[in-house]
Amino acid sequence: MYSTAFVGHHLNRVAVMGGTHGNELSGVYLVKHWLQDPSELQRRTFTATPFLANPKATERCIRYVNQDLNRSFKKSFLTSKGTQDDLYEVRRAQEINQLFGPRDSADAFDFIFDLHNTTSNMAACLIVDSEKSVFTMHMCHHIQKHIQGPCPIYLLGWPEQEKFALLSVAKNGLGLELGPQPHGVLRADVLSHMKALVACGLDFIDLFNQGTSFPAFDTVAYKVIEPMDFPRSPDGEILGFVHPQLQDKDFLPLKPGDPIFQLFSGEEIFYKGDATIYPAFINEAAYYKKGVAFFKLEKCTFSIPPLEASATSAP
């Protein structure tokens, strides 16, 4: 069933989050800028709230302090009784859930943008929880029509009981994953592109609030199948690296028999699947310790129903 949480409703509680990972600097510095001057986040019908998600990690320019904040919004974390012995990111997730949620409640924020960078060649990737999220899929379609360059849609597809990411706190949200950019580094082109994407998303919400309806459409999106690890020795040591022919080929077709890894000995490893897939997050630096060389994705076409104008649109 498609989510129609926003149909007929005015969105006025919108947040823009940066620094969920403290070394992904485009979002960090955009949010710091907007905290000083929020004028770029103002629209006719609302003003978005800038928020630095993980300030301790940001201060140290590291991904996280104790554990990944973007994996700390599981129900078990959010509902546990907080103590001083809790991991920092668990306490921070609980704070964010109280400020911008609580999740799945009527009081939760209408929308959250969560800003990320990746070392992978992901272009301007749009991360959505599911193709059933009608409002966010329409926003993605609007962004793809108005922003130059590829903006692939990456579907998390998490089961209801396994929500784990910051986006799940709000009624709906959009993750922006821009790269390639090294962690701990700012690139002018990537930061400018991220700013334009946020502005386009805010414009879409403003149009909806002012009474614009959006027709049905068909779209391509990529759904996660499973991760693929590097070749490893029995004791877990990496034996090779992403093959040169695969490197930087995010969202491009990978066919059975195509090379995916090259061992340090020079031997090539080939993809043994029985169907074409579309890899993403290829050679992401932060995923080495997670045992992920890339994610295997399925390319899908979806029919998205129309989005009706807000019944409480601005005059």
Rank of each mutant, 00 (worst) to 15 (best):
Q247E: 10
G273Y: 03
A124Q: 09
D235K: 11
S233K: 10
L167M: 14
D110T: 06
K289H: 06
L297H: 09
K249V: 07
F204L: 05
L155M: 13
F261T: 00
Y278R: 10
C125H: 02
S80Q: 13
I62L: 03
C151K: 06
R13M: 09
K74T: 15
F230P: 00
E308K: 15
L156A: 14
M17F: 14
T136P: 02
D104P: 10
R71A: 06
F111D: 01
S310K: 12
Q67K: 15
L11S: 05
I304Y: 01
Y287R: 06
P227A: 05
Q42T: 13
R43M: 06
K290A: 15
S76D: 11
L254R: 02
T47D: 03
A221P: 04
S192H: 14
L174H: 00
F214T: 03
F135N: 00
N12F: 06
V28K: 02
S233F: 10
R63P: 01
D203I: 00
L30Y: 12
S72N: 05
H183G: 10
C125Q: 10
D206N: 12
G173Y: 03
M122P: 00
K195N: 15
H9C: 09
F214P: 00
I96M: 06
S72P: 05
K56W: 06
F208I: 06
K272W: 05
Q144I: 09
N209K: 12
K195T: 15
M139P: 02
I127V: 15
E40M: 12
T47N: 14
V128R: 02
G184F: 09
